[in-house]
Design a protein around this nucleic acid. Structure first.
Lengths: 152, 152
DNA sequence: TATTGTTATACTCTATAACTATA
DNA sequence: TATAGTTATAGAGTATAACAATA
């Protein structure tokens, strides 16, 4: 790993995150919009992805995971349902809950969005050395564990 | 550095970024909104920060750096000017350009927003070991260099 | 009463198109 | 003509408040 001028204090580290993460995020958004995934925003992409991993998840569960309020998520899902990416069904054992699943079309869109975005990202990342990629992967896992679940 | 189950291929690395960065971003947004910085969105925060580092920057320069179109940035700056965080002046040597600087109030807001957000982030990060912080810093620098400037 | 979800409403962020002023 | 910026307009994404249905 290369030496850095930034001191590894909690503050220096936080400052770096605060500066770089929004930049990377901007790039991801652009990629999702551009190549093969014009139809999906980042939260839509993440929601489809979550529903795909947790088939039959309820609206609340998706909202909780993505970090949106229930009304916002309701609106977003409505948009996905209208476009035939997802299906809403009333849970027979608790008729207040809506269970969500992807349609075939939704799965297709999700896969192509993920593949296109990932490929564009991977293209740039492929120019790095393997040690750099290891560093990135390690730090993503640290960040996921450390900042993944909001505390307050 | 810990061993990871994720293979350090470009694709595995891209997948990790695609999964973790939006999560971290969500956390950052929440922090900026919550503690001491209710008045600023992430792009506003970044714009103030850029103007502070590049006093007298033009509207185009800020837009370019943040990654917004000129009209969007014009609108955003208008909002900052109205709230007395920034000042717009016509460049005397080229009267088409607007030079931007922060007011004292803008500097104060920026500092307190940064301090509050950074402190909340740092609080969590402080629980990590120094090697983990080094990993994060290293990867942020790699990401900045690799994904910092859009290609297309 | 508490929980799950929807509808109504409003505000922010962002873009594209059309425009003005200056070079 | 080209560049810097603004205004007009529209769409997406999000929130809060009020509501309906079910437990």
């Amino acid at each position: 790993m290369e030496q850095s001028l930034v001191k590894p204090t909690p503050d220096g580290c936080a400052r770096e995150i605060l500066e770089v993460v929004p930049i990377v995020m901007r790039g991801i958004r652009q990629e999702i919009r551009k190549h093969g995934a014009r139809e999906l925003s980042v939260p839509q992409f993440r929601s489809l992805s979550f529903i795909n991993r947790h088939k039959g998840a309820s609206l609340s569960e998706v909202a909780e995971h993505i970090g949106l309020t229930l009304p916002s998520m309701s609106t977003m899902i409505e948009g996905l349902v209208v476009r035939n990416y997802a299906v809403r069904r009333t849970d027979s054992s608790d008729r207040r809950r809506m269970t969500l699943t992807l349609t075939e079309r939704g799965q297709t869109i999700l896969q192509s969005a993920r593949a296109a975005t990932q490929a564009r990202l991977a293209e740039r990342i492929g120019r790095l050395q393997e040690t750099d990629r290891k560093t990135i992967i390690a730090s993503m896992q640290i960040l996921r564990n450390t900042l993944g679940e909001p505390e307050a």
